Amino acid sequence: MPPQPCLNITSKPTPDPHFTYAHGKFYLTFTANDRIPMWEAPTLLDFWENPKIGPVWRPPPNTPHSSRLWAPELHALQGRWYIYYAAADPEKGNKSHRMFVLGGPPDSEDPHDASKWEFLGPIKGMDQRQWAIDGTVFELDGELYLVYSGWPVPPEREWDDVREDQQLLYIVRLSDPTTAASEAVEICRPDQPWEHLGHIGICEGPQWLEAPDGSWRGLVYSCSASWTKHYKMATLKCLGGDPLSPESWKKSSKPLLQNAEHGEGPFGPGHGCFLNFGSETVALFHATDKDTDGSQGRKCRLQIVEWCDEGPHLGEVVGNSTRDHDKFSEGLMLSVPDGKGADTDGHPSCILHALRGKTKSNT
């Protein structure tokens, strides 16, 4: 199957985009380094020119968590809003990155209110000696889990001897949104050529993805070097059983999404998130316009996920970039499954509604 067109969502850089839908609006957070930003808009297309913009939190200066704030994610868990993100000590730099949590208002309230957010600190119970970034939280079979990217745990936990050229994925069970209830378990390491750039092997940016009918569950993660055009995404299928067992996860044999060979871009697709609308799924990820952009100019793009017997499919390569949402919408499922404009979870019931704020029957 050929890839769907790639729809441009933001006109400004929004690296590591993470979207949440609640209260009739979409909320976007992304890496901004010195703050936790939050944008909101009634439709996905409104993020191009008309989002409401404003940070919800800035760390106090010169604290061990006031630098390089990366990959924030907004989650409604157990009745409250939380934001998970990585941050570093400005005096120590990247090697000091650890995972932190902010607590917000009840999830019945709008999260875009800076006065209602508080710093809750690092995730309690995590080994604070390990470098950790890109944490994501999801619920699986009634339990909460955190998956993050970390440098390898050295033998005998000799933390002065850490490989900084390798990033692995680890999973931790949570007893509540801010407390770890297990040791961290490695579930993915860069053992494939396409996860490497030279001697550097990277697995990061994990995101939970589940088919609308529950036929496939697992993680999509990013790999190779995020500062190059070689960045890409792959999958870890959840096979069932104990998620804390490495045998419960199966890596894909090839990338889920990467550059197209025609060289026209977008380039370096990675570190996105996924939204289900009724029976439809979209991937929202960052990519650059030029193959030489590096870490600059990483803007949010949208591409349709097609579900096959093997699981998610994105055409294997990034589709041609467009802002023509009418052209993009051709061939999509445009009907409203329940006839009310929203599914039972309150999400827009079709992709077109999410894009333009209205539905259109295909009959």
Score class of each variant (00 low, 15 high):
Gly265Pro: 09
Leu69His: 02
Trp39Glu: 11
Gly54Glu: 04
Thr31Asp: 07
Gly272Ile: 05
Asp127Ala: 12
Gly339Met: 02
Tyr27Glu: 12
Pro5Asp: 13
Pro37Ile: 14
Asp107Thr: 08
Gly357Met: 04
Glu139Ala: 05
Gly103Glu: 14
Lys237Ser: 13
Pro177Ser: 04
Leu284Met: 14
Asp324Leu: 12
Glu264Asn: 09
Gly135Asp: 05
Ala41Pro: 03
Leu219Arg: 02
Asn94Leu: 05
Pro72Leu: 07
Val317Ser: 12
Gly346Phe: 03
Pro90Trp: 09
Ile83Trp: 10
Pro15Ile: 07
Gln303Cys: 11
Asp345Lys: 13
Ser295Met: 09
Asn259Ala: 12
His347Gly: 00
Thr292Asn: 14
Lys25Met: 10
Glu109Ala: 13
Trp131Tyr: 09
Leu332Ala: 07
Pro111Lys: 07
Met126Val: 03
Leu239Gly: 07
Pro255Ser: 08
Gly278Pro: 05
Gly270His: 10
Leu197Asn: 10
Tyr85Asn: 01
Val282His: 05
Ala71His: 04
Ser279Glu: 15
Lys95Tyr: 02
Tyr221Phe: 15
Gly103Ser: 10
Pro3Met: 08
Glu204His: 06
Leu244Gln: 13
Asn276Arg: 12
Gly201Gln: 06
Trp249Arg: 00
Ala283Gly: 08
Thr20Leu: 11
Asp242Asn: 15
Leu144Ser: 00
Cys203Glu: 10
Leu209Pro: 09
Asp16Ser: 12
His75Lys: 14
Phe267Met: 03
Arg189Tyr: 04
Pro3Ile: 07
Ala287Leu: 03
Ala41Phe: 06
Phe267Ala: 03
Met333Ala: 13
Ile304Phe: 04
Ala342Ser: 11
Trp117Phe: 05
Trp81Gln: 11
Gln167Thr: 09
Trp227His: 14
Arg35Leu: 15
Ala234Gln: 01
Ser349Glu: 15
Leu45Tyr: 03
Trp131Cys: 00
Leu244Asp: 00
His325Tyr: 14
His313Thr: 04
Phe47Met: 08
Leu244Pro: 11
Glu109Ile: 04
Ala132Gly: 03
Ser295Pro: 13
Thr363Tyr: 10
Tyr148Leu: 02
Arg98Phe: 06
Ser321Ala: 14
Lys237Met: 01
Ser66Lys: 01
Asn94Trp: 06
Glu118Val: 14
Gln207Arg: 13
Leu236Trp: 01
Thr235Asn: 02
Ser349Asp: 15
Gln192Leu: 15
Phe119Gly: 04
Thr179Glu: 06
Gly135Thr: 03
Asp291Asn: 15
His97Asp: 00
Gly121Ala: 05
Pro193Leu: 03
Pro59Ser: 15
Asn320Ile: 12
Ser175Thr: 11
Ala184Gly: 15
Ala184Met: 12
Gly198Ile: 08
Leu140Asn: 00
Ser96Cys: 06
Glu247Gln: 12
Cys350His: 13
Gly205Arg: 09
Gly272His: 09
Cys273Arg: 06
Asn320His: 15
His230Pro: 00
Asn62Cys: 02
Leu169Val: 04
Phe47Ile: 09
Glu73Ile: 03
Gln128Gly: 05
Lys116Asn: 08
Ile304Gln: 13
Leu120Glu: 02
Glu210Asn: 06
Gly150Asn: 03
Cys300Leu: 04
Glu109Tyr: 10
Val318Asp: 01
Thr281Ile: 07
Gly263Val: 05
Arg35Asp: 05
Pro106Ile: 08
Arg217Phe: 02
Glu280Trp: 03
Pro15Asn: 08
Asp134Ser: 01
Lys360His: 12
His325Val: 14
Glu156Lys: 04
Gly270Glu: 08
Pro177Gln: 07
Gly294Ser: 09
Arg98Asn: 07
Asn62His: 13
